[in-house]
Design a protein around this nucleic acid. Structure first.
Lengths: 355, 355
DNA sequence: CTGTTAGCGCGTTCAA
DNA sequence: TTGAACGCGCTAACAG
């Protein structure tokens, strides 16, 4: 097969001074002219080869390659009403669990010919709403949101466009369209029960200023309350949660004179920070202090001692979101609009093993 | 101001069965009709208000809000040839330094009204090339790539379109368009010199199978060779680099009977793993074993002992990439096509302080 | 300040 | 199996 570029020895270099004068781009028409066909035949040869004679296809492909033809999807999507674009809004990428979800989402979308338009809301409802308008103006085939609480206009706009939507990292009986996540409340409750079962009585927590983390903590405290236990202290940390925030939080809690038996963290990153701080201060974990994390990061099994945590399949949330969206776009009926990916308490070395 | 949605009590719910029948979307024409104006006036009122009388603008805005009008950017971009879209290709997001760069890129782009089309290449040149075609078909105003080595077709296509391009995380005298990064070679060399200066003689390394990491290691070994030192062992790890990979690597190196004085890691994540493994094995760091990381992650200053590392401003690479691209798009002349963001050796507790 | 005309590049629809 | 006409929704260019 011949090199499609061998005749191109006159490539234009981008212009260093001022706006680059882009060469007028090659269109379907140009290819058609070279191949001696009509534009529509070229279009079909490229996207719907069954309708075209094999040698015509060959002629088209050769012409397209020779000219370095790249289709203009803006124009295509304008007619077909399909953009092959999925938009996702997550709070943050640095130091967050969402990077894994975005990775999963991307991988699955990519495998199905979709592309990802990514926006970061920085945990701001207003920002999310602003982003959404810009997003919808790109006519995405689907939208992935983080969480279930949004600016009221978000729900309204999304319902008005009728576009498939997945809300992630949480569950709700009344999703905008589809929800894929897990119950914060059940986690809080089960963590409480687990730790109570271990005989812990004096609780503290280090919690990110993140709506879901807060709901988990509230559920935990509610369960403690049912056992007549009030938490000693809660330290709030603004995301992104870093290891140092965990260290500082534990330091602050201890400096305030609290002596918790166990400390519940809203992220393993914070938990690892607490673990290091405890180690540095000569507090033995788990003998003198238990530490419970969240997220089961891939470092969590390998700290010393390894972190007890709550496992969430962060990647699966993204993969599943992509699948549901694609199914919806392709008109397949969904088995369920609310998918619970669950969670698993992981007992490791930072919580005591004997009661 | 009146609620734009209060008259909308007939929102269509997405159809659970089969493809959603989307309501025909509201266009500029619809808004124009309601406002009693021509479409172009509405367009101007929305995007070029200086050309329009204030009360006309008010009428337009009211009509647009009442109808829940969302512009169709595909159509707009088709005419203007400007998509307000920047495409970025990075190898991975999970557990990688690129998440920070993407975050910086996004934040800066977002502040200037651009959106981000994100693709992940999984360190594959071929995948990058495949992605690029899909990317270019969206008519992005600019492209951000990771690294300076690409499939030959990548350079060709990019030059042919004349689109602004930034290559990141590395430097080269001959970028496709713009390069923003740092010199792998100088890092390898300086790390070698720094460690030699500390009196280390027996070196091992844990290195990701990543082109840039490998070049850093090679530069380090070249510098060692100049001092007649051959490294004892190199352990290669496939990205994403996890803490456990670092632990395993150190274990493997020791099990093979090597007794390095210092171990150079291509990422702080690996370094932290090595640190933990050393601690677990009762090897005192830095007394019996020095550990040098790379990347200066935000946990690195807070491990115990804190990690010596090479600081890279990962976020700045993204921010700077956005700025250069935007400048280019707006036709401003760039001061330089190759921007060295530099690096800084950070001496902390995992390398010995006395010679 | 506002409107008319034309066309961006493509795919749907209908016809041959 | 191929083609012609048309329109997707918008804005540039020109007019008034």
């Amino acid at each position: 097969m011949h090199d499609p570029f061998e005749t191109e020895d006159d490539l234009l270099l981008p212009d260093a001074e001022g706006a680059a004068e882009r060469p007028r781009s090659i269109t379907l028409k140009d290819v058609a002219r070279l191949a001696g066909l009509s534009p529509i035949t070229v279009s079909r040869a490229l996207h719907n080869p069954k309708l075209v004679k094999p040698d015509t296809i060959a002629r088209v492909k050769e012409a397209a390659a020779a000219m370095g033809y790249i289709p203009n999807m803006l124009a295509g999507s304008l007619t077909t009403k399909r953009s092959q674009l999925i938009a996702a809004v997550v709070p943050q990428l640095s130091n967050s669990m969402f990077a894994e979800t975005v990775q999963g989402l991307n991988d699955e979308l990519s495998a199905h010919g979709y592309q990802l338009l990514l926006s970061l809301s920085n945990y701001s409802r207003q920002k999310e709403e602003d982003l959404l308008t810009a997003i919808l103006s790109r006519q995405p085939d689907g939208v992935v949101l983080t969480g279930i609480t949004h600016h009221p206009a978000v729900r309204k706009k999304l319902l008005a466009t009728g576009i498939p939507v997945v809300e992630t990292w949480d569950l709700t009986p009344s999703p905008i369209d589809i929800a894929i996540g897990f119950s914060q409340e059940r986690i809080g409750e089960q963590v409480a029960q687990y730790l109570l079962g271990k005989g812990y009585k004096r609780f503290a927590s280090i919690c990110a200023r993140d709506e879901r983390a807060i709901r988990r903590r509230e559920a935990l405290e509610a369960e403690l309350a049912r056992h007549d236990i009030a938490p000693l202290a809660t330290h709030l940390a603004t995301p992104p949660t870093t290891l140092n925030l965990g260290r500082e939080a534990l330091r602050a809690i201890l400096a305030a004179g609290h002596a918790p038996e166990v400390i519940v963290c809203s992220s393993d990153v914070l938990a690892q920070g607490a673990l290091i701080e405890a180690t540095v201060q000569g507090i033995s974990v788990p003998d003198q202090l238990g530490i419970m994390g969240f997220g089961d990061f891939d470092f969590s099994a390998h700290t010393h001692p390894p972190l007890s945590s709550v496992h969430i399949d962060k990647r699966a949330i993204g993969v599943q979101a992509a699948r549901s969206l694609i199914a919806r776009i392709e008109g397949k009926a969904l088995r369920e609009k609310v998918i619970d990916v669950g969670f698993r308490l992981i007992e490791r070395g930072t919580t005591r093993t004997i009661v």
